[in-house]
Write a protein that binds this DNA or RNA. Structure first.
Lengths: 161, 161
DNA sequence: TCAAAATAGTTGCGCCTACAACTTATTTGC
DNA sequence: GCAAATAAGTTGTAGGCGCAACTATTTTGA
């Protein structure tokens, strides 16, 4: 392999560090949610998406899009959340193939109880660790990378946590 | 929940984008390795670590440290790689509790065959997407985040992907 | 010296997820 | 208007991974 196929020292350094972040950051998020709320990050994100939707209701396929999940994965996670009383399923009247998922009162309370600790962690680990300028830089860099990773911006719409 | 518990618009924006990167980047890496080499990123990384070690050999616990994996996880992955002929296990003479994992000739060839495509992807998605300054910024930002995420820098030593 | 504690590694078990097959309902095109 | 194609969800099957239990070996300390 010729040298130009490899990365320069600086490039390699940046990549190694960034790769470590990619591995550690999600693990830290998941660990905190598991410990404090007995939720995976994906479960929390799913509940959060429902909590922001009109009537706290979304069709399964729409919710799958917002959470960037496959439908089989979402289906099982919703089954689990339904068993715990956080979500309710109902057939959609307009299209009887479809299923609407709705956040229950207990589900809403779960989100309300879980969000502060999660936001705190994000603030501690990300926001307060960087200067305002660095956070802006990271935001711009992320935007550029997103264009390459997700050209159709399927993940674009997702807001909050 | 009072406002100061939440994130400002700018902060939220940065976090949402960065969170999307955390989800998409590893998926893109894994997909390419799976498609072109039938390896998970973790398997490739494990082979790569062995390929750089003296005698292409490392003790399981040391290898677990370098790959940031638990010993049970590594043990099964090595079993799988052993079954495919890429790695060989041997009891360590100095400490008979320990096991040495060694890259086979076939394993070396697998790394050599796999590395260029993987490096190309990293160059395409990361290096060439950013300016040299941005890559430097990302490197510095990653270093700061690493300090928070991994204070004992257990992942510090890892080089080359 | 030798029993107790610690260490290295493997394996049983359960959960999560992907892929594919399947069911039911809707849309399309002849 | 109806058969074929498509779409929405669910479930069977298999593989990866974490935790905890287990075996075997080494270290510690009374």
């Amino acid at each position: 392999m010729t040298d130009d196929q490899w990365l320069t020292g600086e490039q390699l350094n940046a990549w190694v560090r960034f790769a470590a972040i990619l591995q550690l950051f999600p693990a830290v998020l998941d660990a905190q949610l598991q410990r404090e709320s007995d939720l995976t990050h994906f479960e929390y994100f799913t509940l959060a998406m429902l909590s922001e939707a009109p009537e706290q209701t979304l069709r399964m396929s729409v919710l799958a899009g917002r959470t960037n999940a496959t439908l089989p994965r979402l289906s099982r996670v919703i089954s689990h959340l339904e068993a715990r009383g956080f979500v309710r399923r109902a057939p959609c009247r307009l299209d009887r193939r479809a299923t609407d998922a709705t956040l229950t009162e207990a589900g809403w309370e779960k989100v309300v109880a879980t969000a502060p600790g999660h936001v705190d962690l994000v603030k501690t680990v990300l926001i307060e660790t960087l200067t305002a300028k660095e956070l802006g830089d990271l935001s711009a860099i992320s935007a550029k990378l997103l264009k390459k990773l997700d050209p159709e911006s399927r993940m674009a719409a997702t807001a909050i946590i």
